[in-house]
């Protein structure tokens, strides 16, 4: 049985798709057969970030409606042969999704894959609710600013009451915090919420901090998940996240700008 990871946030533009692409790639690179699904029907983005937009023939909605088989719609990633992408439809909207249909497709994928990463749309409407309904693990992507934190909190509430695990009274969805677009120097000057502020409000296990980095935008525009750029801080941070998720003990980095710099110095010397 596959583990279903939903990447969610409530608020838009915080880095859900970037994160989905990065961790799916990271898991595949670690040798786990992984599929990443775009559930943002109508606003298809994941294929762009993954750089496979020119190879989309069938999409998730086609599969749900029985117009294509899962295998016809899956696109194999060009960088890693253990990673597959199931794109969203650009021409339809979220009403085309049905709980039963999504469940059926996920079940079919479960037989073949180790991890299923679902890129959730923003908002708390049908698409987002469907994405989190089937979750085993939830990566809550949050920016260090108050409205993003509030929305994440709301999302966590929905997760704990509306997920399939909650409905069936099973072990609750495992929730992790992923702080993205973190700028340590702006935190220091008080312009951004600090990690402690966010942790105090959300009280969640921190899976990682992704520093604000120019490499993210570059990677998105090139269609190469940022995790493949091991020179960029964001890429390294995502690699840490994947390692931590898989149970490795990796210390947190990029929390403090000074520390990061010192550590770099030490790293260079030793």
């Amino acid at each position: 049985m596959a583990r279903i990871i939903v990447v969610t946030s409530g608020k838009g533009g915080v880095g859900k798709t970037t994160t989905s692409a990065a961790i799916a790639m990271g898991l595949a690179k670690k040798g786990h057969k992984t599929v990443v699904i775009d559930l943002d029907v109508g606003l298809r983005n994941l294929d762009l970030i993954m750089g496979c937009e020119r190879r989309v023939v069938y999409d998730f909605i086609n599969v749900i409606n029985g117009e294509a088989s899962v295998n016809q719609a899956l696109i194999r990633d060009k960088n890693c042969n253990l990673l597959y992408i199931l794109p969203a439809s650009q021409t339809r909207d979220k009403d085309a999704l049905s709980q039963e249909g999504v469940g059926r497709v996920l079940e079919e994928l479960s037989e073949d894959f180790k991890y299923i990463v679902c890129d959730s749309p923003a908002g708390i409407e049908k698409g987002a609710n469907l994405a989190l309904y089937f979750a085993d693990d939830a990566f809550v992507v949050t920016n260090p600013e108050i409205s993003s934190v509030r929305d994440s909190d709301r999302m966590l509430g929905i997760l704990s009451s509306k997920s399939r695990r909650a409905e069936r009274n099973e072990e609750p969805v495992k929730e992790y915090l992923l702080m993205t677009r973190y700028d340590a120097s702006r935190v220091k000057s008080g312009e951004m919420l600090s990690l402690d502020d966010v942790q105090e409000i959300l009280s969640l296990e921190l899976l990682g901090i992704i520093p604000e980095s120019k490499s993210v935008l570059t990677a998105s525009n090139q269609g190469v998940p940022v995790i493949l750029n091991d020179k960029s801080e964001a890429g390294q941070a995502y690699a840490d996240v994947v390692a931590r998720y898989l149970g490795e003990k990796v210390p947190h980095r990029f929390i403090d700008s000074k520390k990061g710099f010192l550590r770099k110095l030490f790293g260079g010397r030793s």
Partner: peptide
Amino acid sequence: RSGQRIYAAGDLIVMSPVSAG
């Protein structure tokens, strides 16, 4: 969490944080 509502017909004891909203 934000957006959740709890109604108790008697007394209510909460051990965990109550979020804004």
